[in-house]
Design a protein around this nucleic acid. Sequence first.
DNA 1: TCTCATAAATGGAACGTTCCAATTTTTCAA
DNA 2: TTGAAAAATTGGAACGTTCCATTTATGAGA
Lengths: 346, 346
Amino acid sequence: MSSRDKATILDIAREAGVSKSTVSLVLQGSDLIRPETAAKVRKAIAESGYVYNRGAANLRRAQSNVIGMVINDLTNPFYAEMAVGMERTFQSAGIVPFIANTAENPVRQDQVLKSMLEQGVSGLIVAPARGTSPDAFKRIELAGVPIVFAMRRLAESRIPVVAPDNHRGGLLAAQHLIAKGHRRLAFLGGNAGLSVYHERLGGFLEGCAVAGIPETSVLVIEGDTNRRGGMACLDTALAVAEPPTGALCFNDAVAFGTMLALRKHHLEPGADFAVVGFDDVAEAQHYVPALTSISVDTPGLGERAAHAVLKMIQTRTTRAEDHIGSVTLMVRESCGPNRIDLGERP
Amino acid sequence: MSSRDKATILDIAREAGVSKSTVSLVLQGSDLIRPETAAKVRKAIAESGYVYNRGAANLRRAQSNVIGMVINDLTNPFYAEMAVGMERTFQSAGIVPFIANTAENPVRQDQVLKSMLEQGVSGLIVAPARGTSPDAFKRIELAGVPIVFAMRRLAESRIPVVAPDNHRGGLLAAQHLIAKGHRRLAFLGGNAGLSVYHERLGGFLEGCAVAGIPETSVLVIEGDTNRRGGMACLDTALAVAEPPTGALCFNDAVAFGTMLALRKHHLEPGADFAVVGFDDVAEAQHYVPALTSISVDTPGLGERAAHAVLKMIQTRTTRAEDHIGSVTLMVRESCGPNRIDLGERP
DNA sequence: TCTCATAAATGGAACGTTCCAATTTTTCAA
DNA sequence: TTGAAAAATTGGAACGTTCCATTTATGAGA
């Protein structure tokens, strides 16, 4: 039945009455082959259930046309959206990227990177797992494989980064909350192990300082970067002597959690407490109340990162400029109506 | 600087003063090698930035230790959760699966499958894209690569399937709504191109029929399987002469959309209209109101599918039993408190 | 010390492709 | 028709690994 010993280029050659070289050329779409000959070969291929052995091919040539995407958390819609943006770009370049998930686990990440390297990827996009050790990417740099970081950067690394302008996002959020009349502010969720955390918090504090609110009076509460973390943070925030009236959350997931917890405390997000998210995931605009959030153009960043690797591969370099994407404040309902008239949409 | 011509097994051999065969044996963890010799080899490997060339290895042996997961929509949290369940299983088997997204696009799916095949995957889990043609998997079957379908089945295919008991889920939902006192029911979202649609709808209609509600009086409205689709379906549902008072939604995303649309019509989900979802994604329990949904044990199904391929690979077979996972009704708030009276809603 | 069994290490032939250099076929001007 | 240039095709040597059949080293018993 099913030919157990799969067909090779030689079988095709025999079948079509040509040499293996000819078959190889046809496979590569070379125009050195006469059209009729190519047709004969293609016919033989179609009839034989032949599958091209890319491993063998890569052995001979030195490139591999596979690109790896290593993502820290695929169940986080934010990263899933980013990954899809990357895929779109790769698709139009005619290449199929392989995705792997590290679940924020540096050990898993090591395994995954090793596997991708062994597989001979020609480029890599990595959203590093939390707590990645600084030399986790030494092997890859040594191997000279082009790599770009997405979203997160590593402390002392010269690997190019594609990320949103987190600092400015934090700043915009602070300005917005302050313009709404809030003076007692909080920054909820995230933890100091994340470069993104420092950037967002830094921008937020700067915005506060500029408006005359000293850093020390801003309530900063670390926590998990998911719904549960947001809920916990809010509980803590409301327990202090003079609780805040508004907060920037580390990301949208934390913001959703914060809003859920507010309801448990019989406070209505928007009316009694202002909540700003970060990332502007698709869900933000559908939520009730719709979440005011810092939009980072997620798929756009994905595309950008993909273009960067593609270019690095093409130009055979391992260096590239960082790209810091612009951010915008999406004003929705979770900070309530304007206290000072800024003419935003209802 | 970086040795442009990468090290091979022979370089390691020379460095360690042994033969290439010895290095190969060490790499495979063979116990034929004296520990001191193995140590020497390992030292040389560590010092040289050597990367194992799996492509070359696969050329010689016939298996490849890579497994492909082809997912129809990674941005759908449901499928992302399933994928993570699979990954967990593969991880504990020491293998790194490669994930690819098809974005519900059969053409893309073809490319992805071709690429995975060429890469020499030893097994495949596929959640088929909507509208997949029945012979899209002919190549794979011909190549004798073990494959299992997750969640969706294909009309005339003998490929094993791992999926929840959709029929029973539909039945449970109908019983629940009817027990709550609803008589005018609807099934919202999904479309006839999906096997899952027929199964869920079939179970729902059966549940209705058993309770004396004729199939013809159940309002069935097709629509997109996301939030927007749910919103549109509800609008249509409320526009009929005698609108329904409760509905089973094709999946949780549709249910969320339905609840959003209810609010726009000034109806409160749970109080004025009963909503049941399907899949029980993580968000269901956090939503306000918390969504009553049919839980399918998503990660569990993923694990099951992963085990199935693993076993097929091990036993070198291409056949396996279907697995239909049990489902449970998770009662939360979106159907409101029990109605004792069977009267119409005010 | 010698034998012999066993343990450890090795060389060479594959695996399926690409690419180069070489060969054969075709085309066309003289 | 002939010859030479151009076009089309081809054989063989890589690529980096594994595996088999051998060879070489080790150590126990005499």
